[in-house]
Every structure is written in C-alpha cells, then in structure tokens.
Design a protein around this nucleic acid. Structure first.
Lengths: 149, 149
DNA sequence: AGTCATGTAACTTCATTAGTAACTTGATAG
DNA sequence: CTATCAAGTTACTAATGAAGTTACATGACT
C-alpha cells in the first residue's frame, strides 16, 4: 500500500498559510506539495468542514486559516482528513470462534491499541502553534525559504 | 491498502502446530486460515529461513515447529515474515529543504517512532510459549475446538 | 462578459498483499 | 519403477485505497 500522507501534507500547508498573508490558491498549494489542485481541494475539504480553514471562489479567492493555531492539535487534523487507519498490519478473522485465533488476536490487539493510544495522545498534545514556533526557531538558525514552496 | 495479516496468520499457525502432533500440510493450514496452500508456503518460507519451522516433502511431509516456543517472540515472527511497514501513514518529502516541511516531519516522525518503539518492544516481550499458555487457559474456561481449524 | 478559483464527478495510476493456476522437485509407498 | 503426495516456484490476476488526472459546473470579482 501507499503511505497516506494527508496529515503530513495538511500540516505542511497549514504552517505555510499561517506565515502567509492573504489566501493561497489550490494551485499554489499544489505546487508547494508537488501534486495538483484537485488533490489539494479534496483533502482540504475535510479541514474546511471542521472549520479549521475557509475558502473563497473567484478573483482573489483561495484558502486561509479560520481558527486559532493554539486550539488546533495534530490529532484534530488527523481526524479532519478522515482519521485514516494508522496501522498497516492487522488481524485475520478466518474463524472467530477458534480459541487459538482469539489468543493471538487479543495479544496483537493489545499491543496495537497501546501503540495507537500513545500515538494519538502525542498528536493531541502538539498544537499547530507549537509546530509554527519550532519552525520559526529553525528559521533563525539557517537560511529559510518559506516563500519559495 | 489492504491489511498485512501475515504476522497474525503465522502466529495462528504456529500455535496450532505447537498443539498438534506430526507435520501439518500447506493444504490443511490453508483451510485453517481460509486461504490457499501457495499463500501459506510463501509466507512460511520466511519462518523456515529463520529456522523457526521445518518442512518436508512427500508422503507424510508438511510443516513442523523447529525451535523452542520460549525462544521465539512475536517480534521474531514479525521480522521473519518480512518485517513489514507498521504504519499506514507517513511523511511526504516534496521539498526536503523546506523548513516548514522539516518542522512537520520532525514532529510526526518523533511521534511515529515512539509508537513504533512501544509496539516492537511489546512484541519482543511476548513469546510464543506465553501465547500458547494464554490459549490453554482460555481452553479450560470454554469449549475448545482446536482440532477443527 | 470574461476570468479566476473552488467544487465535483468520473475516471486512471500506483503499490502491495492476497489469491490462483500451472508446473517442477523431491520423498515415500506400493 | 511408478504413482502419489507435498513442498517449491513462477507468473499471473484480484482487491484495496490514496493519489493523480480530466472535464465540467458553480460562484465571485473585474
């Protein structure tokens, strides 16, 4: 399977938007992400439905942030893009009544659940504002090309 | 993407083999897993290469466990089936030189790495022997149909 | 009216596991 | 020695879901 990069991409976009004046068009965002405008609009639709961004048509239109960065966590974005499956591995349920299968699946499900909880908890503790600050900090220590992409 | 169920399936098979006298054929295992013999042989090839199972051709042939259950962890099996990717989500690297992208990817990679470490550590602490014991325990408390599948 | 940008629908592409068919290799039974 | 059984292998198809693409509709500004 191919990686699901929607969370990564949307974070990338949101941080750029946070440091950008005025709306950004799907086309500009697509160039930034190395993809095309339809994919951008499709993915951003979830963010818009959740109220994190806002879009306008026509001349001077495009996308802009519509909420406070402090109040949006990475978990919020993960959910806004569809809250996709986190793991690439899973259980098989050929014979749910098989006691062997149950023992295996319980053990695996426990381990996966613990890892999932850790990951989601971590995502929930990082806000977009924090990410933006860590970006600002790295900008101070090296040449920074935010305008370019 | 489709779930990768190789770890789950192999654990299922190994536990059955551990409670079964004599070799099991790929056909019998396939029926147990609801798949077909080629898939079984393909997946078991990794376990054989790692020395966890052993196979024989011809009459009376089939698969049998070739190592001590205490010495095989779930992580060992995960690796023996190819150590597939654990996560379905990941980073995009459209512009590695972009400071925004770096900030995003660092944050995500940290969170994913922590979850991965937790998961792999957990898998490494569970042995096949423990799984077999948890199966035995559940057999005592409910009707158990190990022969059937 | 013309242009620009979002919004949608309907595809195709891509990557990867799983499923399948056909065949080869080797071991045992009779 | 031959038939049978089972693993081993090759080459292909199916299924899944994100991503990519094409085409067109909708709405807003100049």
């Amino acid at each position: 399977m191919r990686y699901d990069s929607r969370l990564s991409r949307m974070l990338h976009v949101l941080l750029h938007m946070a440091r950008h004046d005025g709306p950004m068009t799907s086309g500009a965002i697509a160039r930034m992400l190395g993809t095309n405008p339809v994919v951008v609009r499709r993915t951003m639709a979830g963010l818009k439905a959740a109220g994190y961004v806002h879009s306008e048509k026509g001349h001077g239109g495009g996308w802009a942030i519509a909420a406070e960065l402090e109040k949006i966590s990475l978990l919020d974005i993960h959910r806004a893009v569809g809250g996709p499956r986190l793991f690439a591995i899973g259980n098989e349920h050929a014979h749910p009544e098989c006691a062997v299968e149950q023992a295996v699946n319980n053990a695996l499900a426990d381990a996966l659940a613990a890892a999932e909880t850790l990951l989601l908890t971590r995502l929930s503790t990082i806000s977009l504002a924090e990410l933006a600050r860590s970006f600002d900090a790295s900008c101070l220590s090296q040449p920074c090309n935010i305008q370019q992409y």
